[in-house]
Write a protein that binds this DNA or RNA. Structure first.
Lengths: 238, 238, 238, 238
DNA sequence: TATGAATGAGTGTTCATTCAT
DNA sequence: CATGAATGAACACTCATTCAT
C-alpha cells in the first residue's frame, strides 16, 4: 500500500484517452520539439492522475511514459500541483469538446432526450478516466477545480442543448415538466455516474451486473422511459 | 501536493462516523485493554481513510488519533493494506446496520418508496465518509473489496425491504413495473450518489446548488415522483 | 562547484569542536539511546555547517558522521533550517560557556586586559568553526540568529567581566578612557577576528604571515600595548 | 533552506558594485556584442556570488540578470567554478583600483593615517559585496584565490601609500613605532572588518549599534586616536 | 554568436515498517 | 501488552551542464 510499491504493481492497463495524438513510445520524439514534449507530458499526466489519483501519481512514471526527462516536467509545468491543475482543466475541456458535437436540433424532443441519455452513458463508458479524475478531485474537496481559471465558462454544451430541447418540448406541449437544464443534466448524469464509477464494487457487493452490456442496454432503456415520462408529466402532478 | 504537506493542511473536519463508542482522547486508555485499543484504532483508521483516501492516509495520524502506539497498529492489523481492508469491511457492516433499522411494513407501497428514497438521501448526507470510501475503493479498482470475506453476505437490508415493498406493490396492483430490487437500489442510489459525492465540483463547474438544503428538498420530491411513477407504469409501456 | 561534487571532495579535516563527548564513530552507539543520538547529530551538524556553510551542508553527510539514520534527523530536529538554528544556538551557548571560566578578579586591570586579549585570540584559534558559523550567518544576513529565542540573554560573560575590569581600572585611576564594555568587546574581537577568519586569503594576497605563531605572538603583544594605552588615555585626549 | 527556495526569497537588494557599465536590462543587447555580453555576465555574477555565496549562487539567476543565455556563460567562462574565480579576481582588481585614487602625499603623517582609516571604513561600507566575497572565499579555505594568477601583484595600493606615510612619519620623528605596512594594513582592516561584516549578528546578540551612523562616527574617532597614538609610541615602549 | 531544449546526479523530506526493550 | 527508536526505500524538486539547431 505504500504508494510506490503496491500501486506500481497495478497492471497498467492502457486507457485510450481519445486524443488526437496519443503518446507513442515506439519511436522516440525527435529531440527539440518543445510543444510535442509538452503535449506528451500532459497526456501522460492525464493518464497517471486518472489511474492513481493525486496522491498516488508519480512524476517519475509520467516522465517515463511521456518519454521525457523529469526535470522538463518542472520547467514546463512548475510542479505536481500545477500539473494536476492543467490535467483537470484539460479533462474538462476535452469532455466538453466531445459534447459539443451532438446535433439534436433535428430530433423530436422525446427522441432528443433519449439520444442525450444514450450519449451520456456511452460518454462515461468511453472516458472512465474522466470519472476517475472527478472522483479524485472530489476526494480533494474541489481544492483545485476552484482555482482553475474560467472553468465555468466552458460549461457543458450539453446544458445549452438541453435547454433548447426542453424549450421545444414545452412549446410543443410534449413536456409539461418545466425542469431547469442543470437539474436535468444532474439527473441524467446521476443515472449513469453511479453504476459506472462504482463498477468495481457493485458486482462484488450486490452481484449487480453493471458491467454486462446486456444489463446496460436494459438499464438505459428503463431509465430513458422513466425520464421521458418524468418530463411529460407536470411536477407533483395529478 | 506532497501527501504530507498539502493534505496535512486540510482542516480536519470532524466526521461523526456514528459508532457506539467514539475515540475518547481525553483520558488515555489504561494500559491493558486490547479490545478497546483495537476499536479505537479502527475508528481512527476509518476516519483517516475516509478523509484522505488510501494513498493519503497516514499511519502516524491514525496512531495519534487513536491515542495508540504506531507499532500496535501493526501488531493488531498487520499492515496498512490489511488495515484498509478492515476499514472497508467495517464500513459496509455499519452502513448495512444503519439500513436495518428501517421499518416499512406498515406503509403503503408508494409511501414506502418515498420513505426509502428520503432515507437513502439522508443516509448519504449523514455518511459522506462512506461515499468517500466507496470512491477510494473504486479508484483502486475494487482491489480490496474483492478479497473481503463474505462481503456479499451482509447485502444491503435495503434490498430485502425493497423486495417486500415491491412485492406488496405488485400484489396490490399499485405497481406494474416488476423491477428487480437490486436494480431499484441502483436507481435510487444513483440519484443521490452523484450530486452528493460531486458536491465539490458541481457548484464550481455548473453553479449547481447541490449543497443547498432547499435544492435538495426540491430534488428529492421531484425524483420521488419520478420513481414512483416509474413503478406504477408497465415497462416500455403504453 | 556543484555543491555535492567539489565540496564533497574537500578534505574533511577534523575540527575539534571541544565538546565533552565528540562523535566517536569507531564503535557504534548502542542502539536505542535517543539522547545520545540526538547529541551526536547535533555535533555532526555543527561540524557540517561550520565546514560547508548553510547551503553546502548536506543532511546525508551529517547522518553519516553522526552514525545515524537520515530520517532520525528529521524526527528530532524538524528540518535542515531548524537544525541549523539549533546548531547556531548551541554554538553561541558553548562559546559563552567557555568565556565564563575566565577569572580576572585577582588581576590588576592592565594585566586583566592583556589576559582577556590573549584569551580572545586563543579562543578564536581554538574555535575556528565558530568564526565560520558567524561568517555563514552573516552571509545569511542574520536570518536565523534573529529568530533564536532569548539569544541575547546568553550575552557574552566576557562583557560582564570586561565591565568589572573597566570599573576597577577607572576607580584606581589606571584607566582614563571610560569605554563601554560592548565597544571594548568589539574592539578586541575585531583585532583578532579579521586576521584569523581571513587566514586563507591574507597570506596569498598580501603575503601576510597571519598563520605563523611567531607573527601571532608579535601581533598580540603589539595590540595589547595599543589597547592598554588606549584605555589609559582620556578619549580625544591631550 | 533548500537553496532554491529560501534563498530565492531573499529580497534581492540592489548592490551598486560601482562599475563603469552596469547591466542594462531595459533594451536587450543586440546580438553580436561578445565583449558586452561577457561584461554583463561578469557583473551579474559578481552580484550573485556576493549575494548568495558560492553554494547559493545560481547560474540561472546570473543569466537572467545578465540578460544572457545560460549556455553563453559556459562558452565564455567554462563553468561555475571558473566563473567564480573570474569574479574573485575582478573583485580584487576593482577594490584595488578604488584604493589607488587616494592622494595622501600632501598630508601630515598623523592626518594621513586618520584619512586612511576613514577611507577604509567608508570603503567597506560602500562595498559590502566585497566583504561578502571575502567571507565566502575564506569559508572555501582560499581554494580559489590561491589559483588566481598574479593575484599578489595587484597588492593593495593602500600598502604602498601606507609605506610612504610611515616612512615620512618616522623620518619626521612623529612616529616612533616602525610598523611594517602590511601589519598596519591588517590592523586597520581588522578594526572595520569585524563590526561591518558582522553587522547582522552583533545587534541581535549584543545589542551593539554597529549599524548606527552615530556609533560609527564615534567608533572611527576612537580608533583613529588609538592607532595614531600607537604609532607615536615606541613598541613595548616605556 | 546565440538559443532553448534536454539531461542526470543529486538533495531535502516523508512514511510504512521493523527492532529492542 | 506496549513503547519509542531506528530504518530504508521512495519521492518531489533543483541545478549545473550539455546538445542540437
Amino acid at each position: 500500500m505504500t504508494d510506490g510499491k503496491s500501486e506500481a504493481n497495478r497492471d497498467e492497463q492502457i486507457i485510450d484517452i481519445g486524443l488526437a495524438a496519443p503518446v507513442d513510445n515506439s519511436r522516440p520524439r525527435v529531440g527539440r520539439d518543445s510543444e510535442g514534449t509538452k503535449r506528451d507530458i500532459l497526456l501522460a499526466a492525464m493518464h497517471e492522475f486518472s489511474e492513481y489519483g493525486d496522491g498516488g501519481a508519480r512524476i517519475d512514471r509520467i516522465a517515463r511514459r511521456a518519454n521525457a526527462n523529469k526535470s522538463l516536467i518542472y520547467s514546463y509545468f512548475g510542479n505536481k500541483e500545477e500539473l494536476y491543475a492543467r490535467v483537470l482543466r484539460e479533462a474538462y475541456t476535452q469532455i466538453r469538446a466531445g459534447e459539443r458535437e451532438l446535433n439534436l436540433d433535428k430530433l423530436e424532443p422525446r427522441e432528443a432526450i433519449r439520444a442525450l441519455m444514450k450519449f451520456t452513458m456511452e460518454h462515461y463508458l468511453r472516458a472512465p478516466w474522466f470519472l476517475r479524475l472527478l472522483a479524485t478531485e472530489n476526494l480533494r474537496r474541489g481544492q483545485t477545480v476552484r482555482q482553475i481559471d474560467k472553468i465555468s465558462e466552458l460549461q457543458s454544451p450539453l446544458i445549452t442543448q438541453l435547454k433548447q430541447v426542453l424549450d421545444r418540448g414545452v412549446a410543443s406541449g410534449a413536456f409539461k415538466n418545466d425542469m431547469n437544464p442543470v437539474d436535468l443534466y444532474i439527473l441524467m448524469a446521476s443515472l449513469f455516474y453511479f453504476p459506472i464509477s462504482n463498477s468495481h464494487t457493485l458486482p462484488v457487493v450486490f452481484g449487480a451486473q453493471v458491467t454486462d452490456p446486456k444489463w446496460r442496454e436494459h438499464y438505459l432503456k428503463s431509465v430513458q422511459d422513466m425520464v421521458v415520462r418524468h418530463l411529460e408529466n407536470a411536477p407533483g402532478g395529478a
